[in-house]
């Protein structure tokens, strides 16, 4: 029994304490958080832009205006680009996307983390776009008409009336997307970016001990996700307080 605990301690010591290895985990954690945070920002930005284009296109199709204007042509072209983007991103594995970004696009660059941020941000954007679009489509058409009948243009209607309501509806789905995104950054380990998963695996290979490094990494991810879930719940409750 005593032997078991002393072995466990040795293993723990090798994983975390010897050579200040806990610092590796900390650095890995910070890298994961940086990548996830900036990728999420990029994902939101791209997602909203793409959703705006796609929704605008859909609404223009429905309105049945008589004259085809210059703006319609632009929107049509943008819509095609957005469709291709969503199809390609959703249709290929994230690992391949990261590898393409890292080995092809960033072949001559040393900025590994930027490659990861761009790759996951672009990936997330495609999913966010569809979530946002579903939110916009979930708002009753009457809301749009009421706003337009007051004299608001399309953009103001989106800003004041549609998006605030849509955002409330899509918050759970968006939260889910960000949770997936945080965990998906572990894919970056595949191309050797020193984030959390990579660090865990590295320590495992140095210590020949699999238990502590991998369990530690798993627990850290779990804590991040729990924290994120907590924050999202709080935000959801605050948004709902204006809703009676």
């Amino acid at each position: 029994m005593q032997q078991f605990f002393s072995d466990l301690w040795t293993s723990f010591e090798k994983t975390f304490i010897y050579d200040d290895r806990w610092k590796f985990f900390l650095d890995g954690l910070l890298a994961t958080l940086r990548i996830a945070f900036f990728a999420a920002l990029l994902g939101i930005l791209l997602g909203f832009l793409v959703a705006a284009v796609r929704s605008t296109y859909d609404m223009r199709q429905q309105s049945g205006k008589r004259a085809l204007r210059f703006g319609d042509v632009i929107i049509k072209i943008l819509n095609v680009i957005c469709n291709v983007y969503i199809t390609v991103i959703r249709g290929t594995p994230a690992v391949i996307q990261v590898m393409i970004m890292y080995f092809i696009v960033f072949a001559n660059s040393r900025n590994k983390e930027l490659a990861a941020v761009l790759s996951f941000g672009i990936n997330s954007g495609a999913y966010v776009a569809e979530i946002v679009r579903s939110g916009i489509m979930s708002i009753d058409k009457g809301q749009f008409e009421a706003s337009r009948s007051l004299g608001f243009n399309y953009t103001s209607t989106m800003y004041h009336i549609i998006l605030p309501q849509a955002f409330k509806n899509i918050l759970p789905a968006l939260g889910n997307e960000f949770i997936v995104l945080v965990k998906e950054t572990s894919v970056a380990a595949y191309v050797g970016i020193a984030e959390l998963t990579y660090v865990g695996n590295l320590i495992r290979s140095r210590t020949y001990e699999a238990f502590f490094p991998l369990i530690a990494v798993a627990l850290i991810y779990l804590v991040i996700v729990l924290l994120l879930t907590f924050l999202l719940k709080k935000l959801e409750r605050r948004l709902r307080s204006s809703d009676h």
Binding site: K65, R66, A67, R69, D140, G142, Q143, E145, A146, S147, R148, S149, L150, G151, F152, N153, I161, P164, Q165, K168, S242, D243
Partner: peptide
């Protein structure tokens, strides 16, 4: 006329809908 900015004219035409369409938020 497509060159007319309809938003300005809609300001002068109030509309009431069957389903009310108040802004719930």
């Amino acid at each position: 006329d497509p060159s007319v900015n309809i938003n300005l004219h809609r300001q002068k035409m109030g509309m009431v809908f069957q389903q009310f369409n108040l802004f719930p938020h």
